[in-house]
Design a protein around this nucleic acid. Structure first.
Length: 927
RNA sequence: GCCCGAAUGGUGGAAUGGUAGACACGAGGGACUUAAAAUCCCUUAGCUAUUGCAGCUGUGCGGGUUCGAGUCCCGCUUCGGGCACCA
């Protein structure tokens, strides 16, 4: 029997299926461990070889934890709602559900071939009504909640209503969209519509007018994390800013907790940093500037309260509500034209256009500290969505203000001693203040940091503003003008949104005749027949965005068939949160923020026991493609080998990597690959080979560099694929897929098999293991255990190779060694381990290796009788010297100095000092 | 512009402050074979040498700390990632 993965692997997978080996139940008698992969969107292209990287790592860890006695929850599912299926539907008319189901089936079969230890009985998909019922349910709870800034938690909206009823907005401490004030009497006088509108200011899920990223090509709005540099992440279409009335989630209310929570979780610093940047906390002051000759007060936000004496003008965002309030009649036409022109530009156009532009509003504001009168401008370099949409401009110390001041000829007053502002602004936050004295406050001579503090204190005391923390994190736009997403459990009665009762959830996604928007621009759901309540009230036409379904899926896995709750209390109390989460960095500012928000919200409700969803998170690197090229000699059908191409005038052409092996082209396969190459001629190199060129590119069909894991499994087996993906390099690093080298790993597995069988002969015996056998084994157990804990899987594979080489040389066939060896290999290569466990090691059918115990290593076997010291002179290693392991430092030193090789290095020198590092090195310092 | 991270042979990559280059690929040489595949063995950082098996230089660049630095500190360069008219 030779190693034959094509025979072993399907059989072992069937065995695990039959035995339901990977089915887990909560079990209070055993410690739990929850290992999760970021579930995939099942795309039409199927899995390529890059996708399983993280899944293999998490599978190794899960299996290891299980061998260590943990009750391991390791589920898999599908993020099934998404744009590609819908766009495919628009093109072909095929129902997205059908496309999605087909794709899922393909993914499932590809995943099963790799031998993962998923508990498939917990599989979920976000488009399943039994699942999205709970997405709708969570949305309802958010609608019914507000954020209490005193308690720092979400509370029922009924409590807020009671407060408004009794006190109006007086003493109300709640996260709000806008600062509004009304009395209890005013609240009581409101009608239903007015009250509904008013409450939107506080609800955690609310309808609001907000600037959204509108993508005309996709016909929908996009969240901030779905847009980069003014283009949609999917498809790269231009995105414009547009004011729309949309569902939003008040994620901003949680900004502080999302930031603080980062301190309690075990994520990489870079990912935490990315989230910190995204949340963007900045401490500063809000200040009031009265507008001359009117009762309008401009509120501005600044982190540089110290520079208030250098304010020479003010700027409003074009979209700011202040613009209309302050613009004078003479300037109205020009300002309106400017605002209009800005509105027509896409975000991308605004970003590209670095030219300074703006208009004077005709208004003047009064600096509350200096009493000076400054002009108020409108310009698109001020953003409506951040702070108050208005700024005080300090051209001397802000480069953007500086550019504006120079363009409009406005004065620049330097505030820091020695700062030269004749050519550019001085933006650094250091130095001594000058020109900063007013009637009541004098900052001159202070260091910037002290001046900021002093100015803030003064502003608070005098009531001309307040200290404020601002976050860049915006509320999440929660409406999408699409079909293939969760419907909102909302209907409208006289223009007021109402929730469907829980008993009517899930609200099923209806069948529709066309997946396109309607002629008058309404979302596709407007095509649905009978899309209204039995009473005839219209249901919401938008659907939820992609991140809705992925925000709480990890909770559902804990209790996937519960019809009473998203997750039952008992199941949640046992599984708690994800102990290890593995996935890509691309979700850093999307899914990983929304999930944390969603979880914190459910935590506030008392629905879940943990405040953070993912305790430890590892980002696996991306696997890029490695493309191959052939070189066509211009205007011919002749192709020249890469090592000779420089003597010809050639064009590089992508060639399918699947007909190239170790960069050598299979020329016959090339001729058959495409008709145009049928008559191809080749210029071969001296070895008679055609060598292809190569480059690292994104893995994609158009580059012909996609490698399908199925092909690797078919050729080498799943165990080889698993080991090779781990061997490729550190898990967290991005690297190109390169099939060159996979033979080495495959060879290792054959050698491993060779310890147990030679042909049809069973080699395993009951002989006593030798000291060498035991040392090799225990070294491996120790190393692999430590490596797995540290997610250093590439080095464990190397350790296996070393161990197998040693044991082969030692001709070790002792069961006492080969049995634990199989167990240690099991997390990496489960099929071969399970097979040998039963056939060579004779375990019966009910005893699976996946439930064996991880072998403990013993230092006793690792101890060497002698150790080798490297002897150095002045730090430079010169020779090595064996010593008994128990020799003391003095003996080692004496032996080193007396060693015959030492004489040469000591010639004409004196020994100044000798350092002995036990078991390692002797450094002799000579002068 | 700000904030992270990285830089080691032909290639992917190893090295708790302690003999840099583990392990693998590729390459070169050899064994077995009619031949090929498969398998096994040897060599493989560079430069001097050389059968005394040694010497010198080497982890992007320049400094520093240390008996000893790929590893720690300071200053650069280049590449990758994140944020970005965020006041």
């Amino acid at each position: 029997m030779n190693y034959n993965p094509q025979d072993i692997e399907p059989r072992r997978q069937q065995y695990w299926r039959d035995k339901q080996t990977y089915k887990v139940e909560a079990d209070a008698t055993r410690p739990k461990f929850y290992v999760l992969d970021m579930f995939p969107y099942p795309s039409g292209a199927g899995l390529h070889v890059g996708h399983p990287l993280g899944y293999i790592a998490s599978d190794i860890y899960s299996r290891y934890k299980r061998l260590r006695g943990f009750n391991v929850l390791h589920p898999m599912g599908y993020d099934a709602y998404g744009l590609p299926a819908e766009q495919y539907a628009i093109r072909t008319g095929q129902h997205p559900e059908k496309t999605t189901t087909d794709n899922i089936a393909r993914y499932r079969s590809q995943l099963e071939k790799i031998g993962f230890s998923y508990d498939w009985s917990r599989e979920l998909r976000t488009c399943d009504p039994e699942y999205y019922k709970w997405t709708q349910w969570a949305f309802k709870r958010m609608f019914e909640s507000y954020y209490d800034t005193d308690a720092d938690a979400a509370r029922p909206i009924s409590e807020l209503v009671a407060h408004l009823e009794a006190h109006g907005t007086d003493e109300l401490h709640a996260a709000a969209g806008k600062d509004v004030e009304f009395t209890a009497a005013q609240w009581q006088a409101m009608d239903e519509k007015q009250r509904s509108d008013a409450l939107m200011n506080w609800r955690l899920a609310y309808l609001g007018n907000s600037m959204v990223n509108w993508c005309p090509a996709l016909g929908t709005v996009l969240a901030n994390d779905e847009v980069s540099e003014g283009l949609s992440l999917r498809g790269g279409h231009p995105v414009e800013q547009k004011m729309m009335y949309q569902w939003c989630l008040r994620v901003s209310a949680y900004a502080g907790r999302l930031l603080k929570g980062l301190e309690t979780i075990d994520w990489t610093d870079s990912l935490k940093e990315t989230q910190r940047n995204w949340i963007g906390r900045s401490e500063g002051a809000e200040m009031h500037f009265a507008v001359e000759g009117s009762d309008v007060v401009l509120d501005i936000f600044t982190t540089r309260a110290d520079t208030v004496f250098g304010v020479t003008f003010m700027v409003l965002a074009p979209e700011s509500a202040y613009v209309d309030m302050v613009t004078t009649p003479e300037r109205r036409e020009a300002v309106q034209a400017y605002v209009e022109a800005t509105r027509r530009k896409t975000e991308r156009e605004r970003l590209i256009d670095k030219k300074v532009s703006g208009e004077f509003t005709g208004a003047y504001a009064i600096n509350p500290l200096s009493g000076k009168r400054v002009p108020v401008y409108v310009s698109d370099y001020v953003l409506a969505g951040y702070g108050t949409g208005a700024i005080m401009a300090v051209p001397a110390h802000d480069s953007r203000d500086y550019a504006f001041a120079r363009h409009f000829g406005l004065p620049v007053i330097p505030l820091i001693e020695g700062a030269d502002v004749s050519e550019e602004s001085f933006d650094a936050k250091s130095g001594k203040m000058i020109n900063s004295a007013g009637p009541e406050l004098d900052l001159n001579g202070m260091e910037v940091a002290d001046a900021i503090a002093a100015a803030k204190r003064f502003i608070e005391e005098k009531g001309i503003g307040r200290v404020k923390v601002n976050y860049r994190l915006r509320d999440a736009i929660f409406s999408r003008q699409r079909y293939w997403g969760e419907p909102f459990p909302v209907y409208y009665k006289d223009g007021v949104p109402h929730l469907l009762p829980d008993s009517e959830l899930p609200l099923l996604l209806p069948e529709i005749s066309s997946y396109k928007p309607t002629a008058d621009g309404e979302p596709p759901l407007a095509h649905a027949e009978g899309w209204h309540t039995p009473e005839g009230y219209r249901l919401e036409l938008n659907t939820m965005p992609g991140f809705a379904g992925s925000s709480a899926y990890y909770l559902r896995y804990m209790d996937p068939h519960n019809s009473e709750a998203l997750v039952g209390r008992e199941a949640n109390a046992y599984w708690r949160s994800v102990d290890l989460y593995i996935g890509g960095t691309e979700h850093a500012t999307g899914h990983l923020i929304y999930s944390r928000f969603w979880n914190k919200f459910l935590y506030d409700l008392g629905e879940v026991v943990e405040d953070e969803p993912f305790r430890k998170l590892i980002n696996q690197g991306m696997i890029q493609g490695r493309s191959n090229f052939v070189y066509r000699i211009k205007d011919t059908n002749t192709y020249v080998s890469a090592d000779l191409k420089d003597s010809y005038d050639t064009t590089a052409i992508h060639v399918d990597v699947n007909i190239v092996s170790n960069d050598v082209l299979d020329t016959e396969a090339f001729r058959k690959w495409m008709p145009e190459y049928a008559d191809a001629e080749f210029v071969l190199n001296a070895d008679g080979k055609y060598i292809c060129g190569w480059a690292v590119e994104k893995m994609s069909k158009s580059m012909f560099n996609v490698v399908n894991p199925d092909d690797i499994v078919e050729r080498y087996g799943a165990d080889t694929l698993r080991l090779y993906e781990m061997f490729l390099g550190p898990l967290e690093q991005s690297k190109p897929w390169d099939t060159n080298g996979i033979d080495g790993v495959n060879r290792f597995l054959k050698k491993f098999w060779g310890l147990y069988y030679k042909g049809d002969t069973l080699l395993v015996d009951d002989s006593e293991p030798t000291a060498d056998n035991l040392r090799s084994l225990h070294k491996l157990i120790k190393k692999v255990g430590a490596d797995i804990e540290a997610f250093s899987f590439n080095t464990s594979v190397a350790a296996f190779m070393i161990c197998i080489n040693e044991l082969s040389q030692q001709k070790c066939h002792s069961r006492a060694v080969l049995e634990p060896l199989a167990v240690v290999l099991c997390p990496f290569a489960p099929h071969i381990a399970e097979e040998l466990w039963h056939t060579a090691l004779g375990h019966d059918d009910n005893d699976s290796i996946v439930d064996a115990a991880w072998p403990e290593y013993s230092e006793e076997y690792l101890r060497e009788s002698s150790v080798t010291y490297a002897v150095s002179f002045n730090g430079k290693a010169r020779f090595s010297m064996p010593m008994p392991a128990d020799a003391d430092a003095a003996a080692v030193e004496a032996a080193a100095l007396a060693h015959e090789s030492s004489a040469r290095w000591l010639e004409g020198k004196t020994v100044r000092k000798v350092i002995v590092v036990p078991g390692k090195i002797v450094n002799i310092v000579v002068g």
